[in-house]
Design a protein around this nucleic acid. Structure first.
Lengths: 238, 238
DNA sequence: TCAATAGTGTCTTTTAGACATTATATG
DNA sequence: CATATAATGTCTAAAAGACACTATTGA
Protein backbone atom coordinates (compact mmCIF):
# COMPACT_ATOMS: atom_id res chain seq x y z
CA UNK A 1 0.00 0.00 0.00
CA UNK A 2 1.63 3.16 1.11
CA UNK A 3 -0.46 5.69 -0.67
CA UNK A 4 -2.78 6.40 2.19
CA UNK A 5 -3.20 5.46 5.79
CA UNK A 6 -5.78 2.73 6.38
CA UNK A 7 -9.26 4.14 6.28
CA UNK A 8 -11.83 3.66 8.94
CA UNK A 9 -13.88 1.38 6.68
CA UNK A 10 -11.03 -1.04 6.14
CA UNK A 11 -11.73 -3.38 9.00
CA UNK A 12 -11.13 -6.32 6.70
CA UNK A 13 -7.55 -5.27 6.16
CA UNK A 14 -5.21 -7.38 8.21
CA UNK A 15 -1.75 -8.81 7.98
CA UNK A 16 -0.77 -11.95 6.12
CA UNK A 17 1.85 -14.56 6.58
CA UNK A 18 4.49 -13.86 3.96
CA UNK A 19 6.65 -16.69 2.72
CA UNK A 20 9.32 -17.25 0.11
CA UNK A 21 9.38 -20.41 -2.02
CA UNK A 22 12.39 -21.17 -4.17
CA UNK A 23 12.41 -23.08 -7.45
CA UNK A 24 16.06 -24.09 -7.69
CA UNK A 25 17.05 -25.57 -11.02
CA UNK A 26 20.25 -27.17 -12.14
CA UNK A 27 21.38 -29.59 -14.81
CA UNK A 28 22.39 -33.21 -14.17
CA UNK A 29 23.17 -35.76 -16.83
CA UNK A 30 21.99 -33.45 -19.56
CA UNK A 31 18.56 -32.97 -18.01
CA UNK A 32 17.03 -30.03 -16.20
CA UNK A 33 16.40 -30.82 -12.55
CA UNK A 34 14.32 -29.13 -9.85
CA UNK A 35 14.99 -29.22 -6.12
CA UNK A 36 12.06 -30.38 -3.98
CA UNK A 37 11.78 -31.15 -0.28
CA UNK A 38 9.46 -33.31 1.79
CA UNK A 39 7.25 -31.22 4.04
CA UNK A 40 7.37 -32.62 7.55
CA UNK A 41 3.71 -31.95 8.21
CA UNK A 42 2.03 -35.34 8.59
CA UNK A 43 -0.94 -34.08 6.62
CA UNK A 44 1.30 -33.75 3.56
CA UNK A 45 2.75 -37.26 3.61
CA UNK A 46 3.91 -38.31 0.18
CA UNK A 47 3.82 -34.85 -1.34
CA UNK A 48 6.79 -32.74 -2.32
CA UNK A 49 7.19 -28.99 -2.14
CA UNK A 50 9.48 -26.17 -3.12
CA UNK A 51 11.76 -25.24 -0.24
CA UNK A 52 10.13 -22.30 1.49
CA UNK A 53 10.36 -20.28 4.67
CA UNK A 54 8.36 -17.50 6.22
CA UNK A 55 9.89 -14.04 6.10
CA UNK A 56 11.36 -12.82 9.35
CA UNK A 57 11.01 -9.32 10.75
CA UNK A 58 14.61 -8.38 10.14
CA UNK A 59 15.09 -10.13 6.82
CA UNK A 60 14.42 -9.03 3.29
CA UNK A 61 13.02 -11.39 0.69
CA UNK A 62 16.31 -12.42 -0.89
CA UNK A 63 17.65 -13.35 2.52
CA UNK A 64 14.64 -15.53 3.18
CA UNK A 65 15.23 -17.31 -0.12
CA UNK A 66 18.82 -18.07 0.82
CA UNK A 67 17.78 -19.23 4.26
CA UNK A 68 15.14 -21.55 2.83
CA UNK A 69 17.75 -23.22 0.65
CA UNK A 70 20.22 -23.49 3.51
CA UNK A 71 17.84 -24.77 6.17
CA UNK A 72 15.81 -27.16 4.04
CA UNK A 73 18.37 -28.48 1.60
CA UNK A 74 21.75 -27.61 3.08
CA UNK A 75 22.54 -25.48 0.08
CA UNK A 76 24.52 -22.30 0.62
CA UNK A 77 25.02 -20.82 -2.79
CA UNK A 78 25.64 -17.14 -2.26
CA UNK A 79 26.95 -16.81 -5.80
CA UNK A 80 24.07 -18.65 -7.47
CA UNK A 81 21.71 -16.74 -9.65
CA UNK A 82 18.61 -15.77 -7.68
CA UNK A 83 15.74 -13.74 -9.06
CA UNK A 84 12.15 -13.13 -8.17
CA UNK A 85 9.64 -15.08 -10.18
CA UNK A 86 6.26 -13.76 -9.07
CA UNK A 87 4.04 -13.63 -6.00
CA UNK A 88 1.18 -16.01 -5.41
CA UNK A 89 -1.60 -14.64 -3.28
CA UNK A 90 -4.80 -16.55 -3.95
CA UNK A 91 -6.95 -16.46 -0.86
CA UNK A 92 -7.11 -20.21 -0.31
CA UNK A 93 -3.78 -21.34 -1.69
CA UNK A 94 -2.71 -22.59 1.75
CA UNK A 95 -5.32 -24.51 3.75
CA UNK A 96 -3.81 -23.35 7.05
CA UNK A 97 -4.70 -19.73 6.39
CA UNK A 98 -3.82 -16.75 4.28
CA UNK A 99 -0.22 -17.06 3.11
CA UNK A 100 1.19 -14.83 0.42
CA UNK A 101 4.19 -16.46 -1.18
CA UNK A 102 6.95 -14.72 -3.09
CA UNK A 103 8.39 -17.29 -5.46
CA UNK A 104 12.04 -17.17 -6.53
CA UNK A 105 13.93 -18.80 -9.35
CA UNK A 106 17.44 -20.00 -8.48
CA UNK A 107 19.96 -21.45 -10.90
CA UNK A 108 23.13 -23.28 -9.89
CA UNK A 109 25.95 -24.74 -11.95
CA UNK A 110 25.99 -28.34 -13.06
CA UNK A 111 28.89 -29.33 -10.88
CA UNK A 112 27.43 -27.98 -7.63
CA UNK A 113 27.12 -30.49 -4.81
CA UNK A 114 23.80 -32.29 -4.47
CA UNK A 115 21.49 -31.37 -1.57
CA UNK A 116 22.93 -32.35 1.79
CA UNK A 117 19.65 -32.89 3.57
CA UNK A 118 17.97 -36.27 3.68
CA UNK A 119 14.50 -35.08 2.69
CA UNK A 120 15.62 -32.97 -0.28
CA UNK A 121 15.98 -34.34 -3.78
CA UNK A 122 16.45 -33.31 -7.37
CA UNK A 123 13.68 -34.22 -9.82
CA UNK A 124 13.77 -34.31 -13.58
CA UNK A 125 11.63 -31.40 -14.74
CA UNK A 126 10.38 -33.18 -17.85
CA UNK A 127 9.18 -36.13 -15.84
CA UNK A 128 7.57 -33.79 -13.32
CA UNK A 129 5.66 -32.11 -16.12
CA UNK A 130 4.44 -35.45 -17.32
CA UNK A 131 3.00 -35.86 -13.84
CA UNK A 132 4.80 -39.06 -13.13
CA UNK A 133 7.48 -38.40 -10.57
CA UNK A 134 6.15 -36.41 -7.65
CA UNK A 135 2.92 -34.81 -6.55
CA UNK A 136 3.29 -31.22 -5.40
CA UNK A 137 1.80 -29.65 -2.30
CA UNK A 138 -0.06 -26.34 -2.11
CA UNK A 139 -0.14 -24.46 -5.41
CA UNK A 140 3.45 -25.38 -6.19
CA UNK A 141 2.22 -27.22 -9.24
CA UNK A 142 1.42 -23.80 -10.66
CA UNK A 143 4.71 -22.23 -9.67
CA UNK A 144 6.92 -24.83 -11.35
CA UNK A 145 5.65 -24.22 -14.90
CA UNK A 146 6.06 -20.49 -14.38
CA UNK A 147 9.64 -21.04 -13.26
CA UNK A 148 10.38 -23.26 -16.24
CA UNK A 149 8.96 -20.77 -18.69
CA UNK A 150 10.93 -17.96 -17.07
CA UNK A 151 14.16 -19.91 -17.38
CA UNK A 152 13.43 -20.85 -20.99
CA UNK A 153 12.56 -17.33 -21.90
CA UNK A 154 15.51 -15.66 -20.20
CA UNK A 155 17.94 -17.92 -21.99
CA UNK A 156 16.79 -16.25 -25.17
CA UNK A 157 17.59 -12.65 -24.46
CA UNK A 158 19.97 -12.67 -21.49
CA UNK A 159 23.33 -14.27 -20.71
CA UNK A 160 21.68 -16.35 -17.99
CA UNK A 161 22.67 -19.66 -19.55
CA UNK A 162 26.14 -19.27 -18.09
CA UNK A 163 24.62 -19.46 -14.60
CA UNK A 164 24.26 -23.22 -15.15
CA UNK A 165 27.96 -23.86 -15.79
CA UNK A 166 31.11 -23.31 -13.77
CA UNK A 167 34.00 -21.36 -15.17
CA UNK A 168 35.83 -22.13 -17.27
CA UNK A 169 33.37 -23.90 -19.54
CA UNK A 170 33.27 -25.20 -23.08
CA UNK A 171 30.74 -24.16 -25.66
CA UNK A 172 29.61 -27.77 -25.76
CA UNK A 173 28.68 -27.53 -22.09
CA UNK A 174 26.85 -24.28 -22.69
CA UNK A 175 25.00 -25.81 -25.60
CA UNK A 176 24.02 -28.67 -23.32
CA UNK A 177 22.41 -26.10 -21.02
CA UNK A 178 20.30 -24.68 -23.80
CA UNK A 179 19.32 -28.12 -25.01
CA UNK A 180 18.33 -29.27 -21.53
CA UNK A 181 16.30 -26.18 -20.68
CA UNK A 182 14.62 -25.82 -24.05
CA UNK A 183 14.27 -29.54 -24.62
CA UNK A 184 15.50 -29.38 -28.19
CA UNK A 185 18.64 -30.36 -30.10
CA UNK A 186 20.70 -27.49 -31.45
CA UNK A 187 23.16 -27.41 -34.32
CA UNK A 188 26.62 -27.20 -32.71
CA UNK A 189 28.10 -25.07 -35.47
CA UNK A 190 25.31 -22.49 -35.55
CA UNK A 191 25.15 -22.37 -31.76
CA UNK A 192 28.84 -21.65 -31.58
CA UNK A 193 28.59 -18.86 -34.11
CA UNK A 194 25.70 -17.17 -32.32
CA UNK A 195 27.38 -17.37 -28.90
CA UNK A 196 30.68 -16.00 -30.14
CA UNK A 197 28.95 -13.28 -32.18
CA UNK A 198 26.70 -12.08 -29.34
CA UNK A 199 28.57 -9.18 -27.84
CA UNK A 200 29.94 -9.83 -24.36
CA UNK A 201 28.27 -13.21 -23.88
CA UNK A 202 31.47 -15.23 -23.39
CA UNK A 203 35.19 -14.47 -23.34
CA UNK A 204 38.02 -16.84 -24.28
CA UNK A 205 39.94 -18.43 -21.42
CA UNK A 206 43.29 -20.20 -21.31
CA UNK A 207 43.75 -23.90 -21.97
CA UNK A 208 41.58 -26.65 -23.32
CA UNK A 209 39.17 -29.17 -21.85
CA UNK A 210 39.95 -32.86 -21.92
CA UNK A 211 37.73 -34.81 -24.30
CA UNK A 212 35.13 -37.23 -23.04
CA UNK A 213 35.56 -41.01 -22.89
CA UNK A 214 34.63 -41.44 -26.52
CA UNK A 215 37.33 -39.09 -27.70
CA UNK A 216 36.99 -35.91 -29.67
CA UNK A 217 38.97 -32.78 -30.23
CA UNK A 218 39.75 -30.88 -27.01
CA UNK A 219 37.43 -27.90 -26.63
CA UNK A 220 38.49 -24.32 -26.05
CA UNK A 221 37.53 -22.85 -22.70
CA UNK A 222 35.50 -19.71 -22.05
CA UNK A 223 34.37 -17.49 -19.19
CA UNK A 224 31.28 -15.35 -18.73
CA UNK A 225 31.39 -12.05 -20.55
CA UNK A 226 30.21 -8.78 -19.11
CA UNK A 227 26.89 -8.58 -20.94
CA UNK A 228 23.57 -9.06 -19.18
CA UNK A 229 21.40 -8.90 -22.28
CA UNK A 230 22.26 -10.59 -25.54
CA UNK A 231 22.66 -8.73 -28.81
CA UNK A 232 21.48 -10.30 -30.92
CA UNK A 233 19.15 -12.53 -28.94
CA UNK A 234 19.32 -16.33 -29.17
CA UNK A 235 15.72 -17.22 -29.96
CA UNK A 236 14.61 -20.79 -29.47
CA UNK A 237 13.46 -22.64 -32.54
CA UNK A 238 9.69 -22.69 -33.00
CA UNK B 1 6.56 -20.83 2.94
CA UNK B 2 4.57 -23.98 3.06
CA UNK B 3 7.29 -26.53 3.12
CA UNK B 4 7.31 -27.02 6.86
CA UNK B 5 5.41 -25.87 9.89
CA UNK B 6 7.09 -23.04 11.79
CA UNK B 7 9.86 -24.37 13.97
CA UNK B 8 10.19 -23.66 17.62
CA UNK B 9 13.23 -21.47 17.02
CA UNK B 10 11.40 -19.16 14.63
CA UNK B 11 10.16 -16.65 17.13
CA UNK B 12 11.19 -13.88 14.80
CA UNK B 13 8.71 -15.05 12.20
CA UNK B 14 5.62 -12.88 12.20
CA UNK B 15 3.10 -11.54 9.76
CA UNK B 16 3.57 -8.53 7.55
CA UNK B 17 1.28 -5.96 6.12
CA UNK B 18 0.86 -6.84 2.45
CA UNK B 19 0.02 -4.12 -0.01
CA UNK B 20 -0.42 -3.76 -3.74
CA UNK B 21 0.95 -0.73 -5.60
CA UNK B 22 -0.05 -0.14 -9.19
CA UNK B 23 2.03 1.59 -11.85
CA UNK B 24 -0.64 2.53 -14.39
CA UNK B 25 0.73 3.80 -17.67
CA UNK B 26 -1.03 5.30 -20.64
CA UNK B 27 -0.17 7.56 -23.54
CA UNK B 28 -1.26 11.18 -23.84
CA UNK B 29 -0.14 13.59 -26.54
CA UNK B 30 2.42 11.13 -27.81
CA UNK B 31 4.12 10.77 -24.43
CA UNK B 32 4.10 7.95 -21.91
CA UNK B 33 2.32 8.96 -18.71
CA UNK B 34 2.19 7.46 -15.23
CA UNK B 35 -0.65 7.75 -12.75
CA UNK B 36 0.31 9.07 -9.32
CA UNK B 37 -1.75 10.07 -6.32
CA UNK B 38 -1.17 12.38 -3.37
CA UNK B 39 -0.91 10.46 -0.12
CA UNK B 40 -3.16 12.07 2.45
CA UNK B 41 -0.75 11.49 5.30
CA UNK B 42 0.39 14.93 6.47
CA UNK B 43 3.92 13.60 6.84
CA UNK B 44 4.07 13.05 3.09
CA UNK B 45 3.00 16.53 2.03
CA UNK B 46 4.29 17.36 -1.42
CA UNK B 47 5.20 13.83 -2.35
CA UNK B 48 3.45 11.62 -4.87
CA UNK B 49 2.94 7.87 -4.79
CA UNK B 50 1.69 4.96 -6.82
CA UNK B 51 -1.91 4.16 -5.96
CA UNK B 52 -1.80 1.36 -3.44
CA UNK B 53 -4.01 -0.50 -1.02
CA UNK B 54 -3.49 -3.15 1.58
CA UNK B 55 -4.69 -6.62 0.73
CA UNK B 56 -7.90 -7.70 2.41
CA UNK B 57 -8.56 -11.09 3.90
CA UNK B 58 -10.99 -12.16 1.21
CA UNK B 59 -9.27 -10.59 -1.75
CA UNK B 60 -6.56 -11.88 -4.03
CA UNK B 61 -3.79 -9.64 -5.30
CA UNK B 62 -5.34 -8.75 -8.64
CA UNK B 63 -8.50 -7.65 -6.88
CA UNK B 64 -6.52 -5.39 -4.60
CA UNK B 65 -4.89 -3.80 -7.61
CA UNK B 66 -8.25 -3.05 -9.18
CA UNK B 67 -9.55 -1.67 -5.91
CA UNK B 68 -6.55 0.60 -5.48
CA UNK B 69 -7.18 2.11 -8.90
CA UNK B 70 -10.89 2.50 -8.24
CA UNK B 71 -10.67 3.96 -4.76
CA UNK B 72 -7.70 6.25 -5.26
CA UNK B 73 -8.14 7.41 -8.85
CA UNK B 74 -11.72 6.59 -9.75
CA UNK B 75 -10.52 4.28 -12.46
CA UNK B 76 -12.48 1.13 -13.11
CA UNK B 77 -10.77 -0.54 -16.02
CA UNK B 78 -11.68 -4.20 -15.80
CA UNK B 79 -10.50 -4.74 -19.36
CA UNK B 80 -7.17 -2.96 -18.94
CA UNK B 81 -3.99 -4.98 -19.05
CA UNK B 82 -2.82 -5.79 -15.54
CA UNK B 83 0.21 -7.87 -14.71
CA UNK B 84 2.46 -8.39 -11.73
CA UNK B 85 5.71 -6.53 -11.83
CA UNK B 86 7.60 -7.73 -8.77
CA UNK B 87 7.42 -7.63 -4.99
CA UNK B 88 9.34 -5.17 -2.87
CA UNK B 89 10.15 -6.34 0.61
CA UNK B 90 13.10 -4.41 1.98
CA UNK B 91 12.85 -4.28 5.74
CA UNK B 92 12.70 -0.51 6.05
CA UNK B 93 11.00 0.46 2.84
CA UNK B 94 8.04 1.89 4.76
CA UNK B 95 8.87 3.96 7.86
CA UNK B 96 5.61 2.96 9.54
CA UNK B 97 6.62 -0.67 9.77
CA UNK B 98 7.19 -3.79 7.77
CA UNK B 99 5.14 -3.60 4.57
CA UNK B 100 5.69 -6.01 1.72
CA UNK B 101 4.36 -4.53 -1.48
CA UNK B 102 3.37 -6.43 -4.61
CA UNK B 103 3.79 -4.01 -7.50
CA UNK B 104 1.61 -4.25 -10.61
CA UNK B 105 1.93 -2.80 -14.06
CA UNK B 106 -1.32 -1.60 -15.63
CA UNK B 107 -1.74 -0.33 -19.19
CA UNK B 108 -4.80 1.52 -20.47
CA UNK B 109 -5.66 2.83 -23.93
CA UNK B 110 -4.89 6.35 -24.99
CA UNK B 111 -8.49 7.45 -25.15
CA UNK B 112 -9.42 6.29 -21.67
CA UNK B 113 -10.88 8.95 -19.39
CA UNK B 114 -8.46 10.82 -17.15
CA UNK B 115 -8.50 10.09 -13.40
CA UNK B 116 -11.71 11.23 -11.73
CA UNK B 117 -10.24 11.92 -8.32
CA UNK B 118 -8.92 15.33 -7.37
CA UNK B 119 -5.63 14.14 -5.90
CA UNK B 120 -4.69 11.83 -8.79
CA UNK B 121 -2.74 13.00 -11.83
CA UNK B 122 -0.89 11.74 -14.86
CA UNK B 123 2.82 12.56 -15.07
CA UNK B 124 5.10 12.43 -18.07
CA UNK B 125 7.43 9.49 -17.46
CA UNK B 126 10.39 11.09 -19.21
CA UNK B 127 10.15 14.18 -17.03
CA UNK B 128 9.77 11.99 -13.95
CA UNK B 129 12.95 10.18 -14.84
CA UNK B 130 14.76 13.46 -15.18
CA UNK B 131 13.71 14.09 -11.60
CA UNK B 132 11.93 17.29 -12.37
CA UNK B 133 8.23 16.78 -12.00
CA UNK B 134 7.40 14.98 -8.79
CA UNK B 135 9.17 13.49 -5.83
CA UNK B 136 8.07 9.97 -4.99
CA UNK B 137 7.24 8.60 -1.56
CA UNK B 138 8.51 5.34 -0.08
CA UNK B 139 10.59 3.27 -2.50
CA UNK B 140 8.31 4.09 -5.40
CA UNK B 141 11.21 5.77 -7.11
CA UNK B 142 12.65 2.28 -7.52
CA UNK B 143 9.40 0.73 -8.71
CA UNK B 144 8.80 3.17 -11.54
CA UNK B 145 12.01 2.39 -13.49
CA UNK B 146 11.25 -1.31 -13.13
CA UNK B 147 7.77 -0.74 -14.54
CA UNK B 148 9.13 1.28 -17.43
CA UNK B 149 11.69 -1.32 -18.32
CA UNK B 150 9.06 -4.06 -18.15
CA UNK B 151 6.78 -2.17 -20.53
CA UNK B 152 9.65 -1.42 -22.92
CA UNK B 153 10.79 -4.99 -22.90
CA UNK B 154 7.39 -6.58 -23.34
CA UNK B 155 6.67 -4.46 -26.41
CA UNK B 156 9.52 -6.32 -28.04
CA UNK B 157 8.34 -9.87 -27.81
CA UNK B 158 4.63 -9.69 -26.98
CA UNK B 159 1.58 -8.09 -28.56
CA UNK B 160 1.21 -5.83 -25.53
CA UNK B 161 1.51 -2.63 -27.53
CA UNK B 162 -2.11 -2.98 -28.54
CA UNK B 163 -3.11 -2.57 -24.88
CA UNK B 164 -2.38 1.14 -25.27
CA UNK B 165 -4.84 1.72 -28.11
CA UNK B 166 -8.58 1.24 -28.47
CA UNK B 167 -10.01 -0.81 -31.27
CA UNK B 168 -10.10 -0.17 -34.10
CA UNK B 169 -6.73 1.49 -34.40
CA UNK B 170 -4.39 2.59 -37.16
CA UNK B 171 -0.83 1.44 -37.54
CA UNK B 172 0.20 5.05 -37.08
CA UNK B 173 -1.37 5.02 -33.63
CA UNK B 174 0.34 1.75 -32.80
CA UNK B 175 3.64 3.13 -33.99
CA UNK B 176 3.06 6.13 -31.73
CA UNK B 177 2.82 3.70 -28.81
CA UNK B 178 6.17 2.15 -29.58
CA UNK B 179 7.78 5.54 -30.09
CA UNK B 180 6.41 6.89 -26.83
CA UNK B 181 7.36 3.86 -24.74
CA UNK B 182 10.78 3.35 -26.29
CA UNK B 183 11.51 7.04 -26.71
CA UNK B 184 12.78 6.66 -30.24
CA UNK B 185 11.57 7.50 -33.74
CA UNK B 186 10.71 4.53 -35.94
CA UNK B 187 10.60 4.25 -39.71
CA UNK B 188 6.89 4.09 -40.62
CA UNK B 189 7.39 1.79 -43.58
CA UNK B 190 9.54 -0.75 -41.76
CA UNK B 191 7.29 -0.65 -38.70
CA UNK B 192 4.28 -1.41 -40.85
CA UNK B 193 6.00 -4.31 -42.52
CA UNK B 194 7.05 -5.86 -39.22
CA UNK B 195 3.63 -5.49 -37.63
CA UNK B 196 1.79 -6.97 -40.60
CA UNK B 197 4.33 -9.77 -40.98
CA UNK B 198 4.29 -10.79 -37.30
CA UNK B 199 1.82 -13.63 -37.14
CA UNK B 200 -1.41 -12.78 -35.34
CA UNK B 201 -0.32 -9.36 -34.08
CA UNK B 202 -3.08 -7.34 -35.80
CA UNK B 203 -6.04 -8.15 -38.04
CA UNK B 204 -7.57 -5.85 -40.66
CA UNK B 205 -10.83 -4.12 -39.72
CA UNK B 206 -13.45 -2.38 -41.81
CA UNK B 207 -13.29 1.28 -42.80
CA UNK B 208 -10.69 3.98 -42.61
CA UNK B 209 -9.68 6.58 -40.05
CA UNK B 210 -10.13 10.27 -40.76
CA UNK B 211 -6.85 12.10 -41.30
CA UNK B 212 -5.54 14.57 -38.76
CA UNK B 213 -5.85 18.35 -39.06
CA UNK B 214 -2.82 18.60 -41.29
CA UNK B 215 -4.26 16.20 -43.84
CA UNK B 216 -2.88 12.91 -45.01
CA UNK B 217 -4.17 9.76 -46.60
CA UNK B 218 -6.87 8.03 -44.52
CA UNK B 219 -5.39 5.09 -42.66
CA UNK B 220 -6.65 1.53 -42.70
CA UNK B 221 -8.02 0.23 -39.42
CA UNK B 222 -6.93 -2.84 -37.49
CA UNK B 223 -7.90 -4.89 -34.46
CA UNK B 224 -5.84 -6.98 -32.06
CA UNK B 225 -4.88 -10.38 -33.38
CA UNK B 226 -4.94 -13.55 -31.37
CA UNK B 227 -1.21 -13.82 -30.71
CA UNK B 228 0.30 -13.21 -27.27
CA UNK B 229 3.92 -13.51 -28.31
CA UNK B 230 5.33 -12.00 -31.48
CA UNK B 231 7.03 -14.07 -34.17
CA UNK B 232 9.33 -12.61 -35.17
CA UNK B 233 9.94 -10.25 -32.27
CA UNK B 234 10.07 -6.47 -32.73
CA UNK B 235 13.37 -5.58 -31.13
CA UNK B 236 14.04 -1.97 -30.23
CA UNK B 237 16.90 -0.28 -32.01
CA UNK B 238 20.12 -0.18 -29.97
C1' DT C 1 -0.79 23.89 -55.68
C1' DC C 2 1.97 22.16 -51.14
C1' DA C 3 2.36 19.77 -46.87
C1' DA C 4 1.28 15.75 -44.35
C1' DT C 5 0.42 11.04 -43.54
C1' DA C 6 -0.53 6.24 -45.50
C1' DG C 7 1.04 2.57 -48.02
C1' DT C 8 4.15 -0.14 -51.47
C1' DG C 9 8.46 -1.54 -53.39
C1' DT C 10 13.52 -2.17 -53.67
C1' DC C 11 18.13 -2.60 -52.37
C1' DT C 12 21.65 -3.86 -48.92
C1' DT C 13 23.17 -5.72 -44.58
C1' DT C 14 22.55 -8.77 -40.93
C1' DT C 15 21.21 -13.03 -38.95
C1' DA C 16 19.58 -17.78 -38.98
C1' DG C 17 19.48 -22.54 -40.60
C1' DA C 18 21.38 -26.44 -43.16
C1' DC C 19 25.28 -28.77 -43.89
C1' DA C 20 30.05 -29.77 -45.83
C1' DT C 21 34.84 -29.82 -44.37
C1' DT C 22 38.83 -29.92 -41.51
C1' DA C 23 41.11 -30.66 -36.78
C1' DT C 24 42.24 -33.44 -32.84
C1' DA C 25 41.25 -36.47 -29.55
C1' DT C 26 40.00 -41.94 -27.81
C1' DG C 27 39.91 -46.85 -28.63
C1' DC D 1 41.92 -47.63 -38.72
C1' DA D 2 36.82 -45.92 -37.12
C1' DT D 3 34.40 -42.87 -34.16
C1' DA D 4 33.46 -38.80 -31.57
C1' DT D 5 33.57 -34.02 -30.70
C1' DA D 6 35.45 -29.33 -31.86
C1' DA D 7 35.97 -25.69 -34.97
C1' DT D 8 35.58 -23.36 -39.47
C1' DG D 9 33.50 -22.30 -43.86
C1' DT D 10 29.76 -21.95 -47.33
C1' DC D 11 25.37 -21.51 -49.26
C1' DT D 12 20.56 -20.03 -48.83
C1' DA D 13 16.61 -17.99 -46.69
C1' DA D 14 14.67 -14.84 -43.53
C1' DA D 15 14.57 -10.46 -41.45
C1' DA D 16 16.03 -5.60 -40.56
C1' DG D 17 17.34 -0.96 -41.98
C1' DA D 18 17.57 2.74 -45.37
C1' DC D 19 15.01 5.00 -48.47
C1' DA D 20 12.62 5.90 -53.03
C1' DC D 21 8.13 6.20 -54.77
C1' DT D 22 3.02 6.36 -55.11
C1' DA D 23 -1.72 7.40 -52.91
C1' DT D 24 -4.98 10.34 -50.66
C1' DT D 25 -6.21 13.68 -47.75
C1' DG D 26 -6.45 19.06 -45.66
C1' DA D 27 -5.27 23.78 -46.30
Amino acid sequence: MNAQAPRSASARVSTCAVAVDVALMTIRDGALQLLLVEPDAPRLQGLWALPGRRVRDDENLDATAHRALAELAGISAPDAHLEQLRTYGEVSRDPRGRVVSVAYLALTPTTQEPPATANARLFDVERLRAGGDAELAYDHGRIVPDALERARSKLEYTALGTAFVEEPFTLGELRGVYEAVWGVALDPANFRRKVVTAHGFVEPAEGRAAPGPGGGRPAKLYRRGGAQRLHPAMLRPE
